[in-house]
């Protein structure tokens, strides 16, 4: 097992959520305040592109975390005093946090596909 895990990786998916969230917020804020003549479909296309990219990165976190969690023999709760269990724990936690980030990303985008105006 590769033991070069880092705590920073746990923050990757939430950071992607944060960037996606800000981009969505800025896109609609600018659309409403500065560029109202742009067609909503173009804004939605832009948000769709952000969302697809963000979902792919976060989805990779979900899958890789899950694989890391399942590596080797140890099962949950990953509380053994071993490098392997530490890795499995970080993998499982990454899986969970990435899954939550994915849900939150989809929630945010969903709102932009329902609302139609700046009113």
């Amino acid at each position: 097992m590769n033991h070069k895990h880092s705590l920073w990786r746990l923050g990757l998916s939430p950071a992607i959520w944060g960037i996606h969230f800000l981009l969505c917020y800025i896109a609609v804020a600018l659309w409403c305040a500065k560029f109202p003549w742009i067609d909503l479909q173009n804004i939605r296309l832009l948000v769709f592109a952000f969302t697809l990219l963000a979902s792919l990165i976060v989805g990779w976190g979900v899958v890789s975390g899950l694989f890391r969690h399942r590596e080797g023999e140890g099962g949950l709760p990953h509380d053994d005093d071993s490098l392997e269990d530490r890795e499995r724990f970080l993998g499982f936690t990454r899986f969970l946090i990435s899954a939550l980030s994915l849900v939150a990303i989809l929630y945010t985008s969903y709102a932009i596909f329902i609302f139609r105006s700046c009113e």
Binding site: Y25, V28, C32, A111, F115
Partner: peptide
């Protein structure tokens, strides 16, 4: 804007 409220409500 309503669309902004939607994002934050979600």
């Amino acid at each position: 804007p309503g669309i902004t409220l939607g994002i934050f409500s979600a």
